[in-house]
Design a binder for these strands. Sequence first.
DNA 1: TATGAATGAGGGTTCATTCAT
DNA 2: GATGAATGAACCCTCATTCAT
Lengths: 198, 198, 198, 198
Amino acid sequence: MEQERIDRRRAQILAAASRVFARQGFHRTTVREVAREAGIADGTIYLYFASKQELLLALLGQLGRVAERPADFAELAGEDARASLDSYLRRRFEDLRDWRQLFAAVFPEVLADPGLRAAQTAQTAPAFEAVEAELARRMQVGELPPLDPALLARAAAATVLGLLVLDVLGDPVVNTRWGELPAFLARLWFEGLRSEGR
Amino acid sequence: MEQERIDRRRAQILAAASRVFARQGFHRTTVREVAREAGIADGTIYLYFASKQELLLALLGQLGRVAERPADFAELAGEDARASLDSYLRRRFEDLRDWRQLFAAVFPEVLADPGLRAAQTAQTAPAFEAVEAELARRMQVGELPPLDPALLARAAAATVLGLLVLDVLGDPVVNTRWGELPAFLARLWFEGLRSEGR
Amino acid sequence: MEQERIDRRRAQILAAASRVFARQGFHRTTVREVAREAGIADGTIYLYFASKQELLLALLGQLGRVAERPADFAELAGEDARASLDSYLRRRFEDLRDWRQLFAAVFPEVLADPGLRAAQTAQTAPAFEAVEAELARRMQVGELPPLDPALLARAAAATVLGLLVLDVLGDPVVNTRWGELPAFLARLWFEGLRSEGR
Amino acid sequence: MEQERIDRRRAQILAAASRVFARQGFHRTTVREVAREAGIADGTIYLYFASKQELLLALLGQLGRVAERPADFAELAGEDARASLDSYLRRRFEDLRDWRQLFAAVFPEVLADPGLRAAQTAQTAPAFEAVEAELARRMQVGELPPLDPALLARAAAATVLGLLVLDVLGDPVVNTRWGELPAFLARLWFEGLRSEGR
DNA sequence: TATGAATGAGGGTTCATTCAT
DNA sequence: GATGAATGAACCCTCATTCAT
């Protein structure tokens, strides 16, 4: 089908853009470099995207689909809190690794551009709301202690986001021990730092 | 004194740059805009900084001085773990609010530029080591449960960093309730999410 | 062919540069003026030359090919000295006229730039050596009086170079009577200024 | 006297300008560099010269006074042609060495700038006329063979000018054997290149 | 549809010149 | 008079975008 060819081309270009943006940053990358990476001519990109900025927005859209994923959280409703957190984090961190490049490509520019900042925040709002609702429910049924759901959601999101950022920055510990993080976080969040004896 | 005048001018220019970069991002900002914001002529900037890039590096240096601050952590050696964390976080979060603009100005570019990423990671390494050592000490004396100090340090740093990022992104909860975060985090990290009844 | 198109464009740009540089000098000429003269856009020049300086170097290369021409001198080996000088000068002066613009475009900058001065002198050295060898040979066979070949070569080159300079300066006599110069020089150099009667 | 102080300052600045222009060329030299070389502040130059261009014009004026010197030629009226040429050239070449720096500083720009080219040619015209008149006189009295005085004057001037240019270009022979040139030229011009036996 | 040469607006930087001290 | 910090016009060059082939 015609649409299919277009989609394939767009995907090819976006993949190339993601690689080069992640490597050099959006502004240090020329459209020509994206084209070279995709193995096509400069002008061809403009047959599939209206501008360089549109490339970024398309990548942001892809990234957005990951950010929306927390809604899956609700699916875990049945399990007990600790187990559900554990398995949720494990899956989440595996996903994130895959999206690392996309994140490195897009996120710095999101942070730098006021328009994108607003868009990103707006896009993330529903996910936060869903998480907050789920947290509140579990608190009500006594599965979780009565904390502020909004703050708890932010703290959790911030930790994951921060680890992703440290990963992109090249922190050697985070780079090499990414796989240990879900279990570590689950334990930390649930047990806390109280020393056992007390 | 002569040096003093130079320092004042450099500070004036850096403050202006920090404002505009935070607002629009480094690359979307022209040197002319920085000059306008500082109330001086384009060329004057080049009497105090060799290039636009040097402006960024100088701001990065200012930011670095904050990142090194975790070393203060060691000063709290005497207090008990929960109290020391509490007061440390409180002071840290107040500081961070002040450095928010600087962070918003510089960090996106750090994230986007491979060279700056490496520099930033290298610059932060000693602070991580100090924190890890302090954590290990407290674990040994039984003030903290025996967790991996490296991961714990990363998790804590990631949470703070992530909250700063959410703040910059304009998350309404983080924006308006920044002051509640230190106490919330101290409680979360110490008590954990175990519901009381179990 | 592809290379052909490139060569044509380069030639077109160099011809334009030669005209404008000769008219206004290298530094008083903007890249935009060269582009306008060539009938292309500013940026197009940079598809064919890396910098404004490269434009100058390319022109210098063209000029160099003329300076090397004295090697032709050796080809006249068979003829008698006076006749060979005469025909050599005649051809040389005709050539020079054609290269006048190129010379006016490039030479002032060669004279002004230490790096180019050295390059030019180095480039000319082999030609001088060839001429000296030929002169020495003719002296040995008695076709020329025993003068210092190095000085003779310099004196001759200096005269021609000086006339070219006077021509560029706009000396009315040299401008209008360029064609008489070869014969005049041949006569002067051969007969000398001794008045006949002595 | 007041005027004297001014003159001294102007001379000091011009000497500095002459050195730096000769070394780096007019356009590659900043006004600041001239000031540094003169040991004064940037702005001070503008108390004595209206613009950077005026510096050049003042130096051109100094150079002009040398170019006018050929009028001395007339003073030699009494001597016989060969002897007078010989001593004239000897004194001229010594002078020229002294003016070498000035020449290197100013001449490239004269060659490059249409306005200065015209000025220089106009300024030199009277000297040429004087020389031509003297040559014509000597031809009439039989001291010189009947050549075209205008061409002869140009040829002689071109040779000297060309040698000066070769000197500035850094030709090693001209650089090291400048002192031999007057005698060589006198011999060449008078005896010519006819081999003796013929 | 794909190409890549051409375009030209825009930005970082330099530097001649001014002027408050 | 002397200073040198400040100015801002001008220039070289880059690169997103267009369009003829």
